[in-house]
Protein backbone atom coordinates (compact mmCIF):
# COMPACT_ATOMS: atom_id res chain seq x y z
CA UNK A 1 0.00 0.00 0.00
CA UNK A 2 2.76 2.41 0.93
CA UNK A 3 4.31 2.80 -2.54
CA UNK A 4 0.86 3.51 -3.98
CA UNK A 5 0.30 6.26 -1.44
CA UNK A 6 3.62 7.96 -2.01
CA UNK A 7 2.95 7.95 -5.73
CA UNK A 8 -0.36 9.71 -5.12
CA UNK A 9 1.29 12.42 -3.05
CA UNK A 10 4.01 13.04 -5.60
CA UNK A 11 1.30 13.43 -8.24
CA UNK A 12 -0.39 15.89 -5.92
CA UNK A 13 2.78 17.95 -5.64
CA UNK A 14 3.06 18.33 -9.37
CA UNK A 15 -0.59 19.40 -9.44
CA UNK A 16 0.10 22.04 -6.85
CA UNK A 17 2.79 23.63 -8.95
CA UNK A 18 0.33 23.82 -11.83
CA UNK A 19 -2.62 25.07 -9.82
CA UNK A 20 -1.35 28.63 -9.85
CA UNK A 21 -2.47 29.14 -13.44
CA UNK A 22 -5.49 26.83 -13.68
CA UNK A 23 -7.74 25.53 -10.94
CA UNK A 24 -9.94 23.49 -13.25
CA UNK A 25 -7.19 20.96 -13.82
CA UNK A 26 -6.80 20.61 -10.10
CA UNK A 27 -9.79 18.41 -9.35
CA UNK A 28 -8.61 15.56 -11.53
CA UNK A 29 -5.29 15.58 -9.70
CA UNK A 30 -6.71 15.35 -6.20
CA UNK A 31 -6.28 12.15 -4.22
CA UNK A 32 -9.33 9.93 -3.79
CA UNK A 33 -9.97 11.01 -0.21
CA UNK A 34 -10.24 14.65 -1.10
CA UNK A 35 -12.46 13.93 -4.08
CA UNK A 36 -14.67 11.95 -1.73
CA UNK A 37 -14.78 14.85 0.71
CA UNK A 38 -15.73 17.16 -2.11
CA UNK A 39 -18.54 14.83 -3.13
CA UNK A 40 -19.81 14.71 0.45
CA UNK A 41 -19.84 18.45 0.88
CA UNK A 42 -21.62 18.76 -2.46
CA UNK A 43 -24.21 16.31 -1.20
CA UNK A 44 -24.79 18.49 1.84
CA UNK A 45 -25.17 21.58 -0.30
CA UNK A 46 -27.61 19.79 -2.57
CA UNK A 47 -29.67 18.67 0.42
CA UNK A 48 -29.73 22.18 1.76
CA UNK A 49 -30.76 23.68 -1.56
CA UNK A 50 -33.46 21.10 -2.01
CA UNK A 51 -34.97 21.76 1.40
CA UNK A 52 -34.82 25.50 0.72
CA UNK A 53 -36.64 24.88 -2.52
CA UNK A 54 -39.34 22.93 -0.70
CA UNK A 55 -39.73 25.71 1.85
CA UNK A 56 -40.01 28.26 -0.93
CA UNK A 57 -42.73 26.21 -2.57
CA UNK A 58 -44.67 26.01 0.70
CA UNK A 59 -44.40 29.73 1.30
CA UNK A 60 -45.36 30.50 -2.25
CA UNK A 61 -48.50 28.41 -2.02
CA UNK A 62 -49.36 30.11 1.28
CA UNK A 63 -49.12 33.51 -0.36
CA UNK A 64 -51.18 32.34 -3.31
CA UNK A 65 -53.94 31.00 -1.07
CA UNK A 66 -53.89 34.19 1.02
CA UNK A 67 -54.26 36.23 -2.15
CA UNK A 68 -57.17 34.06 -3.29
CA UNK A 69 -58.86 34.37 0.09
CA UNK A 70 -58.76 38.15 -0.19
CA UNK A 71 -61.19 37.94 -3.09
CA UNK A 72 -63.92 36.59 -0.84
CA UNK A 73 -63.68 39.29 1.83
CA UNK A 74 -64.41 42.12 -0.60
CA UNK A 75 -66.90 44.89 0.13
CA UNK A 76 -69.60 43.16 -1.90
CA UNK A 77 -69.78 40.44 0.70
CA UNK A 78 -70.12 42.91 3.59
CA UNK A 79 -72.68 41.91 6.20
CA UNK A 80 -72.67 38.27 5.14
CA UNK A 81 -72.35 35.69 7.84
CA UNK A 82 -69.17 33.64 8.13
CA UNK A 83 -67.91 31.05 10.56
CA UNK A 84 -64.74 32.35 12.14
CA UNK A 85 -62.24 29.69 13.16
CA UNK A 86 -61.18 30.33 16.75
CA UNK A 87 -59.07 27.21 16.84
CA UNK A 88 -58.63 24.52 14.21
CA UNK A 89 -61.77 22.79 15.48
CA UNK A 90 -63.85 25.58 17.06
CA UNK A 91 -65.85 28.10 15.06
CA UNK A 92 -67.95 31.10 16.00
CA UNK A 93 -70.55 32.87 13.88
CA UNK A 94 -69.62 36.32 12.69
CA UNK A 95 -70.43 38.86 10.02
CA UNK A 96 -68.07 40.37 7.51
CA UNK A 97 -67.58 44.02 8.42
CA UNK A 98 -66.67 44.87 4.86
CA UNK A 99 -64.60 47.88 5.87
CA UNK A 100 -62.19 46.95 3.09
CA UNK A 101 -59.34 46.52 5.55
CA UNK A 102 -57.14 43.59 6.48
CA UNK A 103 -54.14 43.04 8.72
CA UNK A 104 -51.09 41.46 7.17
CA UNK A 105 -48.30 39.69 8.98
CA UNK A 106 -45.18 41.14 7.41
CA UNK A 107 -42.81 39.13 9.57
CA UNK A 108 -41.02 39.34 12.95
CA UNK A 109 -44.36 39.90 14.69
CA UNK A 110 -45.30 43.07 12.86
CA UNK A 111 -48.76 43.45 11.36
CA UNK A 112 -49.72 46.20 8.96
CA UNK A 113 -53.22 47.39 8.14
CA UNK A 114 -53.95 47.49 4.43
CA UNK A 115 -56.92 47.86 2.14
CA UNK A 116 -57.84 44.74 0.24
CA UNK A 117 -56.40 46.20 -2.91
CA UNK A 118 -53.10 47.04 -1.22
CA UNK A 119 -53.02 43.60 0.38
CA UNK A 120 -53.51 41.98 -2.99
CA UNK A 121 -50.61 44.00 -4.37
CA UNK A 122 -48.51 43.03 -1.37
CA UNK A 123 -49.08 39.34 -2.02
CA UNK A 124 -48.43 39.79 -5.70
CA UNK A 125 -45.09 41.39 -4.84
CA UNK A 126 -44.25 38.62 -2.40
CA UNK A 127 -45.12 35.90 -4.87
CA UNK A 128 -42.93 37.53 -7.49
CA UNK A 129 -40.10 37.82 -5.01
CA UNK A 130 -40.33 34.18 -4.00
CA UNK A 131 -40.55 33.05 -7.60
CA UNK A 132 -37.38 34.95 -8.40
CA UNK A 133 -35.59 33.35 -5.47
CA UNK A 134 -36.82 29.94 -6.57
CA UNK A 135 -35.40 30.52 -10.03
CA UNK A 136 -32.05 31.37 -8.50
CA UNK A 137 -32.06 28.27 -6.34
CA UNK A 138 -33.12 26.13 -9.26
CA UNK A 139 -30.17 27.36 -11.28
CA UNK A 140 -27.80 26.66 -8.40
CA UNK A 141 -29.30 23.22 -7.95
CA UNK A 142 -28.68 22.29 -11.57
CA UNK A 143 -25.16 23.68 -11.39
CA UNK A 144 -24.29 21.75 -8.24
CA UNK A 145 -25.93 18.62 -9.53
CA UNK A 146 -23.88 18.68 -12.73
CA UNK A 147 -20.74 19.33 -10.75
CA UNK A 148 -21.53 16.42 -8.50
CA UNK A 149 -22.03 14.20 -11.52
CA UNK A 150 -18.56 15.12 -12.74
CA UNK A 151 -17.06 14.47 -9.33
CA UNK A 152 -18.75 11.09 -9.04
CA UNK A 153 -17.42 10.00 -12.41
CA UNK A 154 -13.97 11.13 -11.40
CA UNK A 155 -14.23 9.26 -8.13
CA UNK A 156 -15.33 6.11 -9.92
CA UNK A 157 -12.42 6.19 -12.35
CA UNK A 158 -9.99 6.91 -9.54
CA UNK A 159 -11.24 3.98 -7.51
CA UNK A 160 -10.98 1.76 -10.55
CA UNK A 161 -7.44 2.93 -11.21
CA UNK A 162 -6.47 2.24 -7.64
CA UNK A 163 -7.95 -1.25 -7.50
CA UNK A 164 -6.25 -2.26 -10.72
CA UNK A 165 -3.01 -0.86 -9.38
CA UNK A 166 -3.39 -2.90 -6.23
CA UNK A 167 -4.11 -6.02 -8.23
CA UNK A 168 -0.98 -5.48 -10.24
CA UNK A 169 1.00 -5.13 -7.04
CA UNK A 170 -0.47 -8.34 -5.73
CA UNK A 171 0.40 -10.16 -8.91
CA UNK A 172 4.01 -9.04 -8.94
Amino acid sequence: MAPGKSKATSKDDSANSKSSDGQVLDIAQLPIQQVNQLAQSLDKELDYLQSSMQQMKDIQSRFVSAKDTLKSVNTENAGKEIMVPLTSSLYAAGTLAGDNKVLIDIGTGYYVEKTINEASLYYKRKIEFITKQMDLIQKKLVEKYNFKQVIMELLQSKIQAQTSQMQQQKAS
Binding site: L103, I106, G107, G109, Y110, V112, E113, K114
Partner: peptide, 26 residues
Protein backbone atom coordinates in the same frame (compact mmCIF):
# COMPACT_ATOMS: atom_id res chain seq x y z
CA UNK B 1 -36.62 38.64 7.57
CA UNK B 2 -35.97 41.94 9.30
CA UNK B 3 -34.80 43.50 6.07
CA UNK B 4 -38.00 42.44 4.37
CA UNK B 5 -40.03 43.92 7.22
CA UNK B 6 -38.05 47.13 7.02
CA UNK B 7 -38.64 47.33 3.30
CA UNK B 8 -42.34 46.87 3.84
CA UNK B 9 -42.53 49.44 6.65
CA UNK B 10 -40.63 51.92 4.53
CA UNK B 11 -43.03 51.81 1.61
CA UNK B 12 -46.35 52.01 3.46
CA UNK B 13 -48.12 55.36 3.87
CA UNK B 14 -47.25 57.34 6.96
CA UNK B 15 -50.71 57.06 8.45
CA UNK B 16 -50.77 53.27 8.23
CA UNK B 17 -51.70 51.43 11.40
CA UNK B 18 -49.01 49.03 12.55
CA UNK B 19 -49.45 46.38 15.19
CA UNK B 20 -46.85 44.38 17.04
CA UNK B 21 -47.56 40.87 18.20
CA UNK B 22 -46.72 40.71 21.89
CA UNK B 23 -47.44 37.28 23.24
CA UNK B 24 -50.98 36.51 22.06
CA UNK B 25 -52.02 40.15 21.71
CA UNK B 26 -51.70 42.65 18.90
Amino acid sequence: ENKLVKEELDIVKDNTKVYKLIGPAL
